[in-house]
Write a protein that binds this DNA or RNA. Structure first.
Ligand SMILES: [Mn+2]
Ligand SMILES: [Mn+2]
Ligand SMILES: [Zn+2]
Ligand SMILES: [Zn+2]
Lengths: 135, 135
DNA sequence: CTCCTAGTTTATAATAATTCTAAAGTAAAA
DNA sequence: TTTTACTTTAGAATTATTATAAACTAGGAG
């Protein structure tokens, strides 16, 4: 993803392409594979991989802005920290409890044959499959 | 579940049947249907439904002791609070985002036809299906 | 029973993750 | 170039949870 595309992505989301947002967007979106992270891990990686400095609040702000704009999704993981995901398509996860690592599972890799109908007046928004791993 | 059974349940878990534990166990386990809760909701309900007083730390301690003993399970729900579940069998959930309510799905209600194999050197511990609801 | 002790409860402090605040800085419209 | 709304920032505040240590108690030994 080129700089111009980062700018487009931000602009089209109503986000000014500030130095911080562009740097964080480049770090998050200029990759081939899905990236799963917590604010803490992102903070550390940005400190290591970039020369810019980011206030922690800016990282929170930016990640939430990206999530709100639909460029990031959130994954439910047991524990206290919130996990984010650059894969915004409908997909599932392995979770390795030993390493606290998430691994993507493409939606096509999971076929559900039977599922209960939603309770009265409710509809199914989406189905998440979470596969816990052990050694 | 009678008082004698509550005592047995506690004793067999190596937990002294104290006034607080017995009260909380009665509240949690003397019911027909699954009960899903957070520490905060349990605290409020205990305050309303019982005459005893419980320090918040005692509720945390007791719930964790019950979980460790296998009498409660924990459910991954998006958000900051930890959810607990009196249903300790393998099962799945609907989650109603409007009301923040969990609804049990019996394991037999979900049939998965296809699932990817675990990554190298890892095994599948369990599969959790989480169905988000909308109105 | 009475005493003893390990286990338990409790109020409070500490910690960890996240959000809020308000002042200073900046992108971009006018 | 000026203005303005948006953004960043450091630090304070909040929320959920865990740790601490003093007071209390269940239950066994004597
Ligand atoms: Mn979580
Ligand atoms: Mn959670
Ligand atoms: Zn993912
Ligand atoms: Zn349940």
């Amino acid at each position: 993803m080129k700089k111009i595309d980062i700018f487009k992505k931000l602009r089209s989301s109503g986000l000014r392409p500030t130095k911080q947002r562009v740097e964080i967007a480049k770090f998050l979106f200029e990759r081939d594979k899905t990236f799963h992270f917590t604010i803490e891990s992102l903070d550390k990686l940005l400190a290591k991989k970039t020369t810019s400095r980011f206030a922690l609040a800016t990282i929170y702000n930016t990640v939430h802005a990206f999530k709100k704009a639909g460029h990031l999704s959130e994954v439910d993981v047991r524990g206290k920290k919130t996990y984010f995901d650059t894969n915004i398509s409908n997909h599932h996860h392995f979770y390795d409890n030993e390493t606290s690592e998430l691994i993507d599972i493409d939606a096509s890799e999971v076929v559900i044959q039977k599922i209960p109908k939603a309770p009265n007046g409710k509809k199914i928004k989406n189905v998440e499959v979470f596969i816990n791993l052990k050694n």
